[in-house]
């Protein structure tokens, strides 16, 4: 039943430092763009840097952007997060649009979310508010003092009304001196 994998550990949902409870802080700390100025594989990344990078840096003042132009090296984006995760991603031969989307993913993640398998999709500190279930939660209190086996608790009481019973009730109702609440239903 347990799926163990050395390279894909199982983890519960966590958010670092109660993020979101008070104020929300963007979790991406810094991005590093490593690219080659002339090689073809970095074309997408070079286009991204020329067109979108300044806007990105302005819109996210909490993120530090580094650029590392390195000759004869394939293009790479490295994102570092506030909880210490480091996400390395190769963007060799990726188009400008794809790189924009991947940078957006890096920006909105709170760490390396895809490196661990989430065991549950919820996390609470207070799993029970009205008190955890016990076998006595929904039991009738009369059971405490009852002498079991007792037909009051044991006999079947869920049958539909029989025709005889209906006739009897009709007879009782049409009597003049009987009120509706006093009618006792048998079985």
């Amino acid at each position: 039943m347990s799926a163990k994998n050395l390279f894909l550990p199982a983890a519960f949902v966590r958010a670092p430092l109660q993020n979101g409870v008070g104020r929300y802080v963007c979790q991406l700390q810094r991005i590093t763009f490593k690219f080659c100025k002339s090689h073809g594989g970095s074309r997408g990344l070079r286009d991204f840097i020329e067109q979108n990078l300044v806007e990105f840096a302005k819109e996210n003042p909490g993120v530090v952007v580094y650029m590392k132009p390195r000759r004869h090296r394939s293009p790479v984006i490295v994102g570092e997060y506030l909880n210490g995760d480091r996400v390395w991603m190769s963007v060799h031969n990726k188009t400008h649009d794809e790189i924009t989307k991947w940078v957006e993913v890096m920006r909105t993640q709170q760490g390396d979310v895809s490196s661990s398998r989430l065991r549950k999709y919820q996390y609470t500190d207070h799993p029970s508010i009205q008190g955890p279930w016990t076998p006595f939660t929904f039991k009738i209190p009369e059971l405490n003092t009852a002498q079991l086996p007792d037909p009051k608790f044991g006999a079947n009481n869920r049958l539909p009304q029989s025709a005889t019973e209906e006739l009897r009730l009709m007879f009782e109702k049409q009597k003049l001196n009987v009120k509706e609440e006093e009618l006792k239903v048998a079985e």
Binding site: V21, Y24, T108
Partner: peptide, 30 residues
């Protein structure tokens, strides 16, 4: 606590807890 219907599923939530929701969903961070 409340039971809330979100993205086709029902979740039991209380103050301060985390929920992970799958699929394409427009709302952005923050």
């Amino acid at each position: 606590f409340a039971i809330v219907h979100l993205l086709g599923k029902q979740w039991r939530i209380t103050d301060g807890d985390l929920l992970v929701v799958e699929g394409y969903w427009p709302p952005n961070i923050g």
